[in-house]
Write a protein that binds this DNA or RNA. Structure first.
Lengths: 213, 213, 213, 213
DNA sequence: GATGAATGAGATTTCATTCAT
DNA sequence: TATGAATGAAATCTCATTCAT
């Protein structure tokens, strides 16, 4: 009983080792240019062993997605819980996404990948759907913040909680992705610092939802 | 003189034919899953001939990018010129981007591709830089609209014209891309219609920049 | 003593279970397309355990061959014993082979496999030789039937007992194998029913050996 | 005009060269154990080039089948035409098949392969069906020989031309295949020479169809 | 200018088999 | 005895790109 437990733990550890090795390679080269050969080498295992733990290259990539998703969700949960007021909750949601993108740019990219290529994923990949479901459930939860803000007289009356949170979520993640792609150029071309621009983004979004104060 | 001119014209015509054939295939299958073979077939030419006109698959894809870019820029130019007021100019800018995404989703995607994969592009690809330069130049021009809005007392005092237009541009294009990826789910999950959400997005953004109305 | 005996019995039982599981899978998919994994699953054992009982995939397949061989030999033995006259003994030999092919087409195929691929079998496979030896010994026995038939004035004088029985054996098994491969086409193309053709085959062979009656 | 013709000829020549190289390897190792790598090496071409001429390993193997089939059909045609009498035509048909098996044992085996594995062939393989159709058409033609024999009072009245020729064809090809698999053992075990056994086979088959002589 | 032919360099995935426990 | 884990060694097929004509 202790034995089978230990075995189980060890198997999970190896799984995690493989994922870590895969991250190393995927993060450097992207999905397409990474080969199972490269991952095997990094993991110091044979290619065949990889297939013992993951049915396909895609599934291995998806394991990384799950890691990233878990981190992001936890960060957002914490952020919302810690913030004292509704306004700060909403703002800290934005800041947390930005923080995630900054601290884990590669996870952010993997999550992007599955969004963008959802249509092309091999059939029989229901796990990704579960992930999207979780995302939608979270959106609903956050829409409660807008709702609450409206009740408090904080948020504009004319906003629809669900619609607006969807727009903000899509906008802001889109902004972050694009922004860091050209961050350096923006600096050299416009003299705009990273943090300044983030602040401008927070300001625009919050202005967009809050009532005249 | 007339002869070489005609030759030139014919060469350009063939180039355009190839690009059109390539569009046909790329739009159906995406960059990775499209083969030069497929394009050659569509163009009724040999693969080798393709290489007479384009140095690589990527460069051919880039020619499509240029077409898309030209269309988008012209649409925006027209939109701004036609709108009578500053506020309407800004709003019509947003609506034009949305219109472009809707009418030319494939061009939109190609433009995305080059933004996202810029880092991985084979070296010796300066043309993409020129394209990005044009984009930045346009951003600067549109920042004048914000500037003008501020002068008119229309736009919030605390906004920086350049920063805010950058944010808005990145946000809104990001929103559009993501939105259409999940448009159907949003409808079935939240009962949200496409146009409603777009309107909510316009509202949020305009609210974000305009002063008390 | 009783213990080791029981152990022995249990081991043999497990061996037979494995063979049965292997049959299930091999019969469905053929030798090449069957994997040890599939057999292990069917047997509810691990792949490694399979190798405890059989040195290789081929040897496991051979165990099936032996089962088939045993059945066939017993059927023939019975047939010859039951038939009252020499002529009927010979004819029942043919009918028994046809019966075996019909009732156990999969065993027939396995036996085929080892005949056809004998040359390619991995070295160190002497058991197959023993099996072939048994086959040849049987041929000799049956040649006695021809001999006897000659003595009885039943069989043509000019036939050599050994040679003719070899020819008949090889011919008739070959006929059966080929016949059932194209049985359906024969019906639809020539309107020939299975039993009619078998009867024609018996007639031709018996005509070939019997004297004018 | 002459140019494109020459090109065509050269392409066909190369195709034939590839087939010849493939024969070399397939004949040594059989279908399964032959790899495209091996054939490429033998042909002094790259693997990719092989796929320029043949869609798959199977199709390349099938090209060999076609060669063998053509040879066999021509040999049989000649044999029947040359033989002066009906009886000799029938006998020479048998002798020709035996001759083919002896001179081209590898082609014989390839033809076998496609008969045996017909069911497993990848879909979209209609060419093999055409080949089988040709075979059935030939059977019909040869059944005319039996018919003619009956008219001449040469062949037994109770035989059905079509059925009997089918039986003879299936029997005799089956006999040849099996016989050469164990030819050596037969010699050492029974002291039976190859030619003797063939003669016995001819005798048995001809006895089976001819009337009292 | 146009192309048919050729290929280098993989890519993913499979599987019989072994071995430490 | 039983097995989970690991792997070496392929195998088929693909594709962007080049080059002689």
């Amino acid at each position: 009983m202790g034995i089978s437990e230990r075995k189980e733990r060890e198997k999970e550890r190896r799984r995690q080792e493989i994922i870590s090795a895969a991250e190393h390679v995927f993060f450097r080269n992207g999905f397409e240019k990474t080969t199972m050969e490269m991952i095997a080498e990094q993991a110091e295992l044979s290619k065949a062993t990889l297939y013992l733990y993951f049915k396909s290259k895609e599934e291995l990539y998806f394991a990384i997605h799950l890691r990233g998703e878990a981190i992001l969700l936890e960060m957002m949960e914490n952020a919302v819980n810690r913030a004292p007021s509704t306004e700060e909750k909403i703002l800290s949601l934005l800041k947390t996404i930005a923080d995630f993108k900054k601290r884990y740019p590669d996870y952010f990219e993997v999550i992007e990948y599955f969004h963008i290529n959802r249509a092309l994923l091999k059939s029989g990949f229901e796990k990704i759907e579960e992930s999207f479901k979780r995302e939608r459930k979270n959106l609903k939860r956050w829409s409660d913040l807008i709702e609450q803000g409206k009740r408090e007289g904080l948020v504009r009356e004319d906003l629809d909680p669900v619609k607006s949170i969807i727009v903000i979520w899509l906008q802001f993640t889109g902004f972050l992705q694009r922004f860091y792609l050209i961050c350096d150029e923006l600096k050299s071309e416009f003299g705009v610092e990273e943090d300044e621009l983030l602040e401008e983004a927070y300001k625009l979004i919050m202005n967009g939802i809050l009532r005249r104060e």
